[in-house]
Nucleic acid binder design. Structure first.
Lengths: 209, 209
DNA sequence: TCAATTATGTATCTTTTGATACCTTCTCGG
DNA sequence: CCGAGAAGGTATCAAAAGATACATAATTGA
């Protein structure tokens, strides 16, 4: 296990020494196993996670449907938790570990406090909001103007890159949910991709070639 | 013309008396005529506008296409300017007055400074980011799961409400651009709506019934 | 080991949306 | 007043995506 102080170096944020000390003092370092719920939908946020290694999936449930908001990669944090803790709201979204994930947990109290005291923290917060917005805008654009086949391939490639493995563990049904379509459509598209040597299909996972 | 101090009362934000004084001291009050460019795409942001009356339209241009990001209504500000000024970026988007619009103009210098000093300012900033994100998420959902006819009607109703008038001044082509489709599709849908007594069509504007 | 469950493959049909073409009507400047 | 350009109407065809139905293969647990 890497010591906490090295973890802070590793994420490469927060250059103020005083802030680093505060993080050491007040934050925890937690390990989540695959499928662990990190933030539960509808609960008050007590800590905000900053991912050190691994990957979180953040999504909302609306009318029986799951909507993927974003993934949290190392050195990133969950925007929805951040925002919930500014207004003492319940979290409107759920965060689940897609693989084994280590995260620094920041108590909500310090999230707002540090924002006034440390510019690098404030910048981190603002940058998080802005980046997630831009990301969502990209998604919007691709939904509005790209066909599903292209979006499917992009999703697979992006997942492969995020988890640093060509084999994406997902069923056709789940993939359909993430992309807002139906299983049959996805199976059809994937079969075409396989014929074009773009992917290799297996039960429960897809290998991106 | 209403005095500046009343304007600040009218927008109903910023309760700290000291902050109100600072706004009076350092910010301007500007009037934009219909079609005036408030923030130009690609330019450095010098002031961030807070709308007092009227309506701004904020959009991006990507590959020949305009993408509507959001409208800025009274008591709101432009998130993209806000974000650009945090990172001394050029504005990635353009803001244009849809009607005669009055706005408080906040020099970028104070945007970051006040964030540390006044919680109501900081809350305003964070709330702006969060609200725009939620808005975009709603748009995303409706693009992903609603048919164009429903989205068209919702757009018209929402515009009618924002400008407090049943008559929405927009051509079919512009409407198609806003919704990411083509003119023919919009004309077809609108004609159906007219037959269903939902709207009344005119050259250059549409009356929502 | 075998039935139930989950994952996947595929054909058929329909609906929605987009593309194209062509026409009419309105507006406005000269 | 006239002609160009903008705005709008409409028909026809094609493509994309969704719905339904049914079949097969893998996995799992009693």
């Amino acid at each position: 296990m890497i010591p906490f102080s090295d973890v802070i170096k590793r994420i490469g944020l927060f250059h103020e020494p005083r802030l680093r000390e505060e993080i050491l003092e007040h934050c925890g370092l937690q390990t989540f196993e695959k499928s662990d719920v990190v933030v539960r939908e509808g609960q008050f946020v007590k800590v905000v996670p900053i991912v050190v290694s691994g990957l979180l999936r953040v999504y909302q449930t609306r009318e029986e449907r799951e909507i993927l908001l974003y993934h949290v990669e190392p050195s990133q944090t969950c925007m929805m938790s951040l925002s919930a803790c500014f207004f003492n709201n319940k979290s409107p979204s759920q965060a689940v570990a897609k693989e084994k994930t280590e995260a620094i947990t920041v108590p909500t109290k310090y999230v707002t406090q540090w924002q006034k005291e440390y510019s690098s923290w404030n910048e981190f917060v603002i940058r998080t909001f802005r980046n997630r917005y831009d990301e969502l805008l990209d998604t919007l654009e691709s939904i509005a103007f790209e066909h599903i086949d292209k979006r499917t391939l992009e999703y697979l490639k992006s997942m492969a890159s995020k988890q640093q493995s060509k084999e994406v563990e997902i069923s056709h049904q789940q993939l359909a949910n993430e992309l807002g379509t139906t299983r049959v459509v996805i199976s059809r598209i994937l079969k075409h991709f396989e014929m074009d040597q773009l992917v290799k299909l297996h039960r429960g996972f897809i290998k991106v070639l």
